[in-house]
Design a binder for these strands. Structure first.
Lengths: 235, 235
DNA sequence: TTTTTCTCGATATAATTTTCTCGATATGAT
DNA sequence: ATCATATCGAGAAAATTATATCGAGAAAAA
C-alpha cells in the first residue's frame, strides 16, 4: 500500500501544550484583548517563547512582528488542529464508577468527543440511564458500532476484560480507543490507542516525592533507608 | 537551601515504562518463571531491549549475562523505586462524579496511595460516606492535613476552584498534589504537582484521528477540507 | 521621517532521550 | 575442557525535542 512508511505525526508534547494555550487565550479574549505575543503566552505557563511559536507553527497560523497573533484566529486554528470542531460520536464500555463519572463529563463535547451510548456486560445495568445515556448490552456493541459508523471507543472496564473489549470495538470497525484500563492493549497498528494510565501518573508523583525526600536526606547528611537505591550508579 | 540547583530526577518516560514492566513481570511470575531477560520484557510491550536495561539500571538491580534478571528481585526493586511499598495517606478534595470514582479505586493502595478522607465545599455531602470514606467540610482541611501530617492531596474539584483548593492544601503543609482539574496550578516550586489532563489526552487522540484521515486523503489524492491545515508548512 | 522597540520565524546550538555497537561474562552444549 | 550462544552493561551514535541567536519587519515614539 504505497510507501506509508514514515508519516510524521505532530509531537505529543506539542499537542499537549496547544491544549494548555487555549485557556490562556480564552482568558485574554474575555478581557477584550485581541492580540497576543508568544512571550505573553509563555509567561503565563512558564515556558520558552520560542517553543510557543514552534507549536503555533503547526497550526498553520502566522503572526506579525511586533503585534503577535490574532487571538480568535489562533483559538480556532488550535481547535481545528486538534479536531475539536468536528465532534465525533463515541461509545463507552464499562459503566462502573469511572465509566459513570466519564459519562457525566459534559466538557468532552467541547473537545470533539460525544459519548452517545454506554455498554456493560452486567445485565443489571442494561436499559438504565446514567447521566442521560442509556446502558446497552455489550453484545450489541459490534453491530451498532458498525451501523452507526462510530469511530471512537472509550474503555473503562476492569483490566481483565479490557483486551477483549478492545477486540469487540475493532470488530465493530472502531478507529481509535481511549483506554482507561490499566493494561497495554494489543491492537493492529492502524488503530489509534491513547491511554490514561492513572498508575503511571501516580508513579511519577510517588517517585518524585521519594526523590525529593532522598535529595533532602543527602543534603542533610542522613542515611537513606534500606531499599532506597535512588539514582543510577555510575561504575 | 545549599546548592540545590540541579538535582536530576528520573526521566518521566522511564518511570512510566517501569510501571508497564510490572504486569509483565507478574504474569511471568504467575507462570512460575523466575528469570527474565530484557529482550523478553521488550518483546512483550514492543520496545527496545536496551531501553529496558537502561530503565532497570535506575532501580539499582543488576542482571547476569545469559540469564537476565531475577523476577522477584526486579519487582521489589521497581516498587521500591516508585515508592509503592511505602503507602502514603492522602486527602481527596471534591467528592463529585470523578472524586467518587477515585474513592472507589481500591487499586491505589497498591500504588502507594491511601486516601483516608474526602473534603467537599457542599454541606449536603458532609458526613456522608462514599466507598467507606467520610466526606468532611472543606474548611477543616488545612488543620487536619497539618495534624495528620498528610503529604499528598488529590484535587478533583471543578476548574474554577482548583487553584484555591491547591492553596488550601499547601497551607496544610502538603508536599505533592495529584491534580485532575483541567487547569495549570500555580504553586511554589518545592511542591510536586502531577496532572491528569483528560483534555490533553483527548487532544492526542482526536489529533491522531484527524492526522490519520488526512494522511489517507493525501494518499488517495483527496482534497483536505477547509480549515484542515495539518502539517507544518516549509517555506 | 527617522529611530527605537518589540516580536516573528529561520537557523543554529544544546539537551535529552532513544537506539546501536561491542566487549565481557555466564550458561549450556559438544 | 572448549566452543557456541544469549545476555548484560558501557559507551557511541542517532534521533528527537527544547532553547538560544539573530536578521527582518511592523508599530510606536521621537
Amino acid at each position: 500500500m504505497m510507501d506509508n512508511k514514515k508519516i510524521r505525526f505532530t509531537p505529543e508534547p506539542t499537542l499537549r501544550r496547544l491544549v494548555r494555550y487555549l485557556p490562556v487565550l480564552q482568558a485574554l479574549q474575555n478581557k477584550g484583548i485581541e492580540l497576543v505575543s508568544s512571550t505573553t503566552i509563555a509567561n503565563e505557563i512558564v515556558l520558552d517563547p520560542t517553543q510557543v511559536r514552534k507549536d503555533i507553527e503547526y497550526t498553520g497560523i502566522i503572526g506579525k512582528p511586533k503585534t503577535g497573533f490574532v487571538i480568535t484566529e489562533l483559538i480556532t486554528a488550535i481547535e481545528t488542529f486538534l479536531n475539536w470542531n468536528n465532534v465525533t460520536d463515541a461509545f463507552l464500555i464499562g459503566a462502573g464508577n469511572l465509566g459513570s463519572a466519564l459519562l457525566g463529563y459534559e466538557r468532552f463535547k467541547k473537545h470533539g468527543l460525544n459519548i452517545i451510548a454506554a455498554f456493560d456486560a452486567d445485565p443489571a445495568k442494561w436499559d438504565t440511564e446514567i447521566h442521560g445515556i442509556t446502558v446497552l448490552p455489550l453484545d450489541k456493541l459490534p453491530d451498532l458500532a458498525e451501523r452507526m459508523k462510530i469511530h471512537i471507543g472509550v474503555i473503562s472496564v476492569p483490566a481483565e476484560s479490557a483486551q477483549q473489549t478492545a477486540e469487540l470495538l475493532i470488530q465493530g470497525g472502531i478507529l481509535a480507543i481511549w483506554n482507561f484500563a490499566p493494561v497495554h492493549l494489543k491492537v493492529p497498528e492502524n488503530i489509534i490507542v491513547e491511554n490514561i494510565q492513572l498508575a503511571q501518573s501516580l508513579a511519577v508523583l510517588t517517585s518524585r516525592l521519594r526523590e525529593s525526600f532522598t535529595h533532602d536526606n543527602i543534603m542533610s547528611g542522613e542515611q537513606p533507608n534500606v531499599g532506597d537505591n535512588i539514582l543510577p550508579v555510575n561504575r
